[in-house]
Simulated assay, not measured.
Amino acid sequence: MQVQQDEWLTSLIEEHLPRIVDLTARICAIPAPTFHEAERARFMAEQFRQRGLPVEVDELGNVVARRPGQGRAPALLLAAHLDTVFPPDTPITVEQGEGWLQGPGIGDNSLGLAALLTLADLLQTVGTSTPGDLLLAANVGEEGLGNLRGIRALVERSGPELGAVIAVEGHNLGRVTHIAVGSLRLRLTVTGPGGHSWGAFGQPSAIHVLASIVAELTRLPVPKEPKTTYNVGLIEGGVSVNTIAPSASAVIDLRSIDPAELARLGQQLAGIVERHRIDGVEITEEVLGERPAG
């Protein structure tokens, strides 16, 4: 009996495959860089409404569709993020071949969003009732400096009624991730007196100081297990080739799956910064994002 049911469900999913592919391509074609997800959010809201689901859009732009359950069990939140890492002017072309689909943000996370819509279709087709409400959410601010602002707001608001939360990611097809990679993202800004490279030679350069901080960071040993990493992803500064740089900044990403290791790495970076505080130079640290590990 179970085998027959599994075969029937597999057949049903295969029937929906062309629709999933089409939805994924349509979603991918809508630019949605972090902090600019509104157009894609409107698309998702309309798609949920077409399926007869009540929809709410919060002040951040999160889209939440509720499929009422038949019992009193806690609600299940399934969330797929709207935003992508690609800037608004990225050319978007979706290509398809035998068993593959590619385009900017197809897997992260156009497919995840299409999966939410398809799940609503499948549940309606089979007439399945859940013991508690099912919340299907398209959330903002997952990538980069979005700092999980969308899902944080959803969990904070819906927390009392939730029994579980599952993040739906296209790149996670066929696997379940149960370990959270924590991160600490910082902007270091160094300022100094500046001056002419010849006439004021010897004055501290903001770029030289920042470069020394980065060089020392890259010499830090970090464990392979639990995996812990660092990266300097952006660097800016200076005025001209013959000017002692009066300012320079770097955006730094620290990550670990272990909270203690992440904290230790953050403390090590803070120690490096302290060692570079010299006369005539100011160094400021701005926290851009924090994601818990666990």
Rank of each mutant, 00 (worst) to 15 (best):
V94D: 00
S129F: 00
P88Q: 12
A65H: 04
L116K: 09
P88F: 06
T125K: 14
V140G: 11
G159C: 12
L117E: 05
L145G: 13
T130S: 14
G127C: 07
L117H: 05
V140F: 13
D89V: 06
T84F: 04
L76H: 04
R152D: 15
N109G: 01
V126M: 13
T130Y: 00
L111V: 03
L113M: 08
P160N: 07
G163A: 03
L77V: 00
T93F: 00
P104H: 01
T118R: 02
E142I: 02
T90Q: 10
E95M: 11
T118P: 05
F86R: 11
E161F: 09
L116Q: 10
L117A: 04
L101Y: 02
A80H: 03
G105T: 05
V94A: 07
N62D: 14
V140P: 13
D121K: 02
V165G: 13
S110G: 11
G105K: 05
A120V: 08
T128S: 12
G159R: 13
G159T: 02
S129P: 14
L111M: 11
G127E: 05
T84G: 07
W100A: 02
G150W: 01
L78S: 08
D121R: 00
N109I: 08
L135Y: 14
L119W: 10
A79N: 15
N139D: 13
A164E: 10
V85M: 08
V155C: 13
S110P: 09
T125A: 14
G146F: 02
G132S: 07
A138Q: 04
L116G: 06
G141Y: 01
Q96C: 04
V64T: 06
L154E: 11
D108V: 07
L101N: 01
T90V: 08
P104R: 05
E98C: 02
L117W: 13
T90C: 09
G69Q: 01
P131Q: 06
L113K: 06
L117I: 12
V126Y: 07
T118D: 11
E156C: 00
A120D: 10
T93V: 13
S110L: 07
Q102G: 14
G127M: 07
D89L: 06
L123H: 04
